[in-house]
């Protein structure tokens, strides 16, 4: 079946190709994987994979100064724990863990814990439907989707959800990026697993 052609490895390459090949500067790309959860046919979108690129303009990056020291300490603590979870060792001489955790890095990490049941949230609304493109802090802040409002708090100015065969591709940026069909077509090509 098409899903066997589509596995974790090619998914990461597709997300990377999409972001690195884009004209615009996207901060991250996420693939929300669809799965049917019960007999009623209710579907859920859950984490499939993600590619984090970060902000191009380091100067504009919302730095630690814009968050409380306590918030930054909390983020570093979480990162240390995640690191030991992954590396399997408690002590890790990893300087990266003490590096400032930016807002968009934190948003990307928090995204891994999220899922969308039966059409909820921007990804849910886009699934089996049409692309959703939200540009501008005000529109994100005024969105009915909590994830969009959260993204705006963490510095995003653009969020896009594009449906594909078995899930939804989401892109986010700290830049203002207006809707263009080129990106939507790229997603359809890169993430269309039917043929």
């Amino acid at each position: 079946p098409s899903t066997s052609l589509f596995n974790q490895e090619t998914l990461q390459q597709r997300l990377q190709t999409l972001i690195e090949g884009a004209r615009e500067s996207w901060t991250y790309a996420i693939y929300w994987q669809s799965s049917v959860v019960d007999f009623s046919g209710a579907s859920t979108l859950g984490w499939g994979d993600g590619y984090y690129k970060g902000e191009e303009d380091k100067g504009k990056r919302k730095t630690a100064s814009s968050q409380s020291a306590a918030e930054q300490e909390h983020r570093k603590k979480v990162l240390r724990e995640l690191n030991s979870l992954i590396s399997g060792s408690s002590a890790s001489a990893d300087d990266a863990v003490d590096e400032e955790v930016t807002d968009t890095e934190w948003f990307f990490l928090v995204s891994m814990t999220q899922s969308f049941v039966n059409g909820s949230g921007l990804p849910g609304q886009a699934f089996n439907s049409v692309p959703i493109w939200v540009t501008g802090k005000e529109r994100l802040a005024g969105s009915s989707c909590e994830r969009a409002r959260q993204g705006q708090v963490f510095g995003l100015q653009t969020m896009v959800c594009i449906p594909s065969a078995s899930g939804v591709v989401e892109l986010g940026s700290t830049e203002l990026i207006f809707q263009n069909s080129d990106l939507v077509n790229k997603v359809r090509v890169l993430f269309n697993f039917n043929n």
């Binding site: 974790q8 990461q12 994987q33 799965s35 859950g46 984490w47 499939g48 994979d49 993600g50 984090y52 970060g54 990162l79 995640l82 690191n83 992954i86 990893d94 300087d95 990266a96 590096e99 890095e105 990307f108 990490l109 891994m112 814990t113 899922s115």
Partner: peptide, 26 residues
């Protein structure tokens, strides 16, 4: 049902690794 946790772990490992490289490069 186990696919999502595995996907999260793989993505997390990749994110942390890339972050380490990014920090060292900067």
């Amino acid at each position: 049902a186990s696919a999502v946790p595995q996907a999260r772990k793989a993505s997390l490992a990749r994110f942390l690794e890339k972050r380490k490289e990014r920090v060292m490069n900067s």
